[in-house]
C-alpha cells in the first residue's frame, strides 16, 4: 500500500509542475526538417484574405424570426468546420480563417453584427440538420451541399460556391485514377456526408471497405498511416489538405459530382433567406467574393468565378 502513497506524491508533483509551467506567447510554428516522414512543414497560422467586414448599421429584415433572435441577442451563432484548411480552419492560436469562415463573417456583418461578436460552433457533418432545426445555431457555413433531401429539414441560401467530389490519395499512389478505380480500396469520409452516401449508393467500393469518421482530418490521418487508400469529399476541401502537406498527398483531379455549397438556414424563414441571398449576390457583383476567394481557397492554386444563385 506504500505504492499508493508514492503514486499520490508523484501525481501531486506532476500536477504542481504542470500548473507552474509557463507557456511562450505567440504563434506556435513548426520547425521543419529532421522528420522521418519528410513533409516540408507548412505554417499552421491562420491568415485572412484581408477583406474587412464592417457591420451594417441599419440592417433590418422584416418578418424574420431568425433575424429578431440575432438582433435581441446582439450576437450570432454560426456553425462552422474547424479542420478544413483554407475553408473552415482553427489554428493553434484559436484563430479561425478560410473561405467559409469569411463568408460567414461577411453575412454576419450584413446582419449588423460585428464579426468579433460571432460565436462559432463546431458541428459535425451528421449533426448539421439537427443543429439548425433545434436552433443551436443561427446559420451554418461549412461545405454544406444543397440537396433536395436536406431541403425538407432546412433552407439554403446560395450557392456561394460550386465544388465537385474528388479523391485525395498518397503521393506515391498510382492505381487510383478516378471513381471507377476504387474497387477493393479502402475509402474514408465523414459520417453522414454526401460523398460517403454516394460511394455507398453507387457501389464505388465494397461496403466493408467504407471507413467513416466524424471529421475529414481523421480520415487524412488514416490515409497518411496507410490504413485507408483514399479520402473522398469535395475537391475544395481536399486541395486544402494537399496544400498543407504537398510532399505526401495529392488530389486525383477527376471530380465526379457537382456540389453546390449553400448557407444552411432555419426552414421556412423566407424573409431571412431572401435577405441572405441578396447579400451574397451583392458580394458577387462588387468583387468582395473574389477577394475573399483569392485570399483563402485560391491560395491552393486554382481560380474560380462566382456561381449562379438559386433562389426559391
Amino acid at each position: 500500500m506504500r505504492y499508493q502513497r508514492v503514486a499520490a506524491v508523484a501525481m501531486m508533483a506532476s500536477l504542481a509542475l504542470s500548473a507552474a509551467a509557463c507557456g511562450k506567447e505567440g504563434n506556435p510554428t513548426p520547425s521543419g526538417g529532421g522528420n522521418a516522414s519528410g513533409g516540408a512543414a507548412q505554417s499552421d497560422n491562420c491568415t485572412s484574405s484581408g477583406v474587412t467586414f464592417t457591420p451594417k448599421t441599419d440592417a433590418a429584415v422584416a418578418g424574420s424570426p431568425t433575424f429578431e433572435k440575432i438582433k435581441t441577442a446582439g450576437k450570432v451563432t454560426i456553425g462552422v468546420k474547424f479542420d478544413q484548411p483554407n475553408l473552415g480552419y482553427k489554428d493553434a492560436q484559436g484563430k479561425r480563417c478560410g473561405f467559409d469562415v469569411e463568408i460567414a463573417q461577411y453575412v454576419a456583418s450584413k446582419l449588423g453584427v460585428d464579426p468579433a461578436k460571432i460565436e462559432y460552433k463546431e458541428i459535425a457533418s451528421a449533426n448539421r440538420e439537427t443543429a439548425i432545426k433545434g436552433g443551436e445555431i443561427d446559420y451554418y457555413v461549412g461545405t454544406y451541399s444543397i440537396t433536395d433531401k436536406r431541403k425538407n429539414d432546412v433552407s439554403f441560401a446560395g450557392p456561394y460556391f460550386v465544388a465537385g467530389q474528388d479523391l485525395l490519395v498518397r503521393k506515391d499512389e498510382s492505381s487510383i485514377t478516378g471513381k471507377d478505380s476504387l474497387k477493393g480500396k479502402k475509402v474514408c469520409s465523414a459520417t453522414g456526408s454526401t460523398p460517403i452516401q454516394r460511394v455507398r449508393d453507387e457501389g464505388l467500393t465494397e461496403a466493408s471497405n467504407i471507413v467513416e469518421f466524424k471529421t475529414y482530418s481523421e480520415c487524412v490521418s488514416q490515409l497518411l498511416d496507410k490504413k485507408v487508400d483514399a479520402v473522398t469529399t469535395d475537391d475544395a476541401i481536399l486541395k486544402g489538405y494537399a496544400a498543407q502537406n504537398p510532399d505526401e498527398l495529392k488530389v486525383v483531379g477527376q471530380p465526379f459530382s457537382t456540389e453546390k455549397y449553400g448557407i444552411g438556414l432555419p426552414k421556412d424563414d423566407k424573409a431571412f433567406r431572401d435577405y441572405v441571398n441578396d447579400q451574397i449576390e451583392a458580394a458577387f457583383t462588387d468583387g468582395t467574393w473574389q477577394k475573399i476567394y483569392d485570399g483563402t481557397l485560391g491560395k491552393s492554386g486554382s481560380s474560380a468565378t462566382p456561381p449562379q444563385l438559386e433562389r426559391y
Binding site: 471507413v211 481523421e218 490521418s221 488514416q222 498511416d225 496507410k226 490504413k227
Partner: peptide, 12 residues
C-alpha cells in the same frame, strides 16, 4: 490514431 503513427498497422 496514435498507434498507426508507431508503424503498427491494425484494422479497425
Amino acid at each position: 490514431f496514435a498507434v498507426p503513427k508507431l508503424d503498427v498497422n491494425i484494422d479497425y
